[in-house]
Write a protein that binds this DNA or RNA. Structure first.
Lengths: 77, 77
DNA sequence: TAAAAATGTCAAATATATATTACAATGAAA
DNA sequence: TTTCATTGTAATATATATTTGACATTTTTA
């Protein structure tokens, strides 16, 4: 009896929320949050795992609740 | 005319939420989340800035919404 | 009370988030 | 088309989140 392996993948809808907000480029948002455009690009591409500080600042500047922007997707492998 | 410097300090109530949940040590929570006890200790002491992945797992195991657990406190310095 | 469990903390090592610089690809506007 | 803004991405460097191992202090429990 083997426990099923669960992959806890972090997902986000930063890109969607930024575009919905309108008139805000990756570079704009990055500057507001205080990270580089490249970092924001990787976050939007869900290629890494930002710190809570950056997430909270994104949430604030996009007027979108933290737990609407970021969630965990459990997948059995 | 100088813009007032704002410090965006990240705060959390992980320790409070863990104790409210009851019967769960730092070590227990750390193991559930998949970090060391030392890391959980530092997070609870608000001495650093965890990744969103760790925050989401804490939120899940404490049954406490992400944006109730973590927030930004704006302070003028 | 003593013993055990839980917590706080330190130093050193490792992993990884983020910065920097640069350039190619895409899309919008002229 | 050509130009310009935006986005995707790569390599290397730096900062810091996290680990490991250890020990002292505090809290709980017998």
């Amino acid at each position: 009896m083997v426990k099923p392996v669960k992959e806890a993948a972090v997902r986000n809808k930063v890109k969607i929320a930024r575009i919905e907000k309108g008139n805000l480029t990756q570079g704009d948002l990055a500057k507001l949050v205080g990270v580089t455009r490249q970092t924001m690009n990787l976050i939007e591409a869900q290629k890494y795992n930002p710190t809570i500080r950056v997430c909270l600042l994104i949430s604030k500047h996009l007027d979108c609740r933290l737990d609407e922007l970021f969630w965990i997707e459990e997948e059995e492998l």
